[in-house]
């Protein structure tokens, strides 16, 4: 059973739809006990990092997420919350990865923010969640804040700079893009995650 963390942070419906299409069992829950005993955890999210973090804290979910031993997937803001902090707010975050999420700042209006649309991912190391996904595949992004490339990056994307499209530390994986909206490539990633 996969626990999708229910913390009023946006696109849970899209994640549920994607898992349903793949016939993957899941529950949407804000109960720390459910989350603790789940086989896997998905932390979705769109919107504002501080609002999202506040919601996790209000529901007393930060400890159980930080202590997770099972495979964990953070999506978009869910990945950003894996950082130590985000300048969106600003807010402290879960601190799974020691890095700071920051806003895209460009000198020219030619680089639009949000970074919105399909962009290529470049693998920087092999990870089973990217099994069968070719280097250079297009996936769907929509975000104004990013995590810089760091030692936990397993995938990068170039938008003005090269930044973390996916990160991993032990059982924790995070993706900045939306696998649930990234066509067959995204479905492959979700399937890979379920099979971890």
């Amino acid at each position: 059973m996969i626990a999708i963390v229910d913390y009023n942070a946006g696109n849970t419906c899209s994640v549920i739809n994607a898992l349903n299409r793949l016939n993957i069992d899941h529950i949407l829950t804000a109960d720390p006990l459910d989350i603790e005993k789940a086989d896997k955890i998905i932390l979705p999210g769109v919107g504002h990092a501080k609002a999202a973090m506040d919601n996790l804290e209000k529901r007393n979910l930060t400890d159980v997420l930080k202590a997770a031993k099972q495979p964990f997937l953070g999506v978009c803001v869910g990945m950003q919350l894996m950082a130590s902090m985000s300048t969106e707010g600003p807010t402290q975050a879960l601190g799974i990865v020691d890095n700071i999420v920051q806003r895209f700042e460009f000198d020219s209006n030619a680089m639009k923010v949000p970074h919105m649309g399909w962009n290529r991912i470049h693998k920087t190391s092999d990870h089973p969640v990217f099994a069968g996904i070719n280097d250079g595949s297009f996936v769907y992004f929509v975000h104004s804040y990013y995590m810089p490339q760091n030692e936990h990056s397993i995938c990068t994307t170039n938008y003005g700079i090269s930044y973390s499209a996916a990160i991993c530390r032990d059982n924790f994986v995070g993706v900045q893009f939306h696998p649930e909206k990234s066509g067959p490539i995204g479905e492959r990633l979700l399937k890979n995650f379920v099979e971890l």
Binding site: C13, S14, N17, R21, E180, K181, G183, P184
Partner: peptide
């Protein structure tokens, strides 16, 4: 939302936050 796996937007006659919420919550 149940059937397609690419992003989609909905417009037309939207004037308030509660309608937006209902549309987003439906996928």
């Amino acid at each position: 939302g149940e059937c397609i796996n690419i992003p989609f937007a909905v417009g037309g006659g939207i004037s308030e936050v509660n309608r937006v919420e209902k549309i987003l919550k439906n996928g």
